[in-house]
Amino acid sequence: MIPIISEPRQILLAGMSFYGDPFDIHAGWDEENRIGELWNRWMRFLYHNPFCQNLAAEMPGFYEVHLYDEDTAEKGLFEVFVGIAIMESVLHKIPENLCLKNLPESKYAIFTLQGMDIKSDWENTIQLSLLESGLQRNDSYNFQYYDERFKGIQHIESSILDVYIPIKNLQ
């Protein structure tokens, strides 16, 4: 798997998050685990909020960010954030029940996953690819980018998504 390397970019996101083990209630590939619940909560909010619907239309695509801390390696707990990209100019208009994430300026190694690869241990494959490419990842977060190419978990065979791994530098 060979990544595309992006130009440095800063990304500002608005959305909702969850902290813990996302599979403690259900570990299947469906919407019943905590990540699925989070997406459902976020989509319900979006459905009832025309202002955020407009924002989503301006900068299409959804983000699922995984953020790691000291409890991630030890206990398997981490934060999952889902949301949309926003411009800095609309920050003051973001509803109070949303969280903001500022992903600092970084280059990204972008891996495109397709079909059943989405269900595989792609993190492992990506890690090997980064090592082979001499790329050093920033271990504190990564994110998945979903757009019209992703057809839903029930249609995984025909779905495509991008995984963004922040990288520190090229050796």
Binding site: P22, F23, A27, H66, T72, A73, G76, D121, N124
Partner: peptide
């Protein structure tokens, strides 16, 4: 030989 994310999912399942 699993990534952390995949391991957590598979262990729970």
């Amino acid at each position: 030989g699993y990534s952390l994310f995949h391991f957590i999912r598979m262990f729970n399942r």
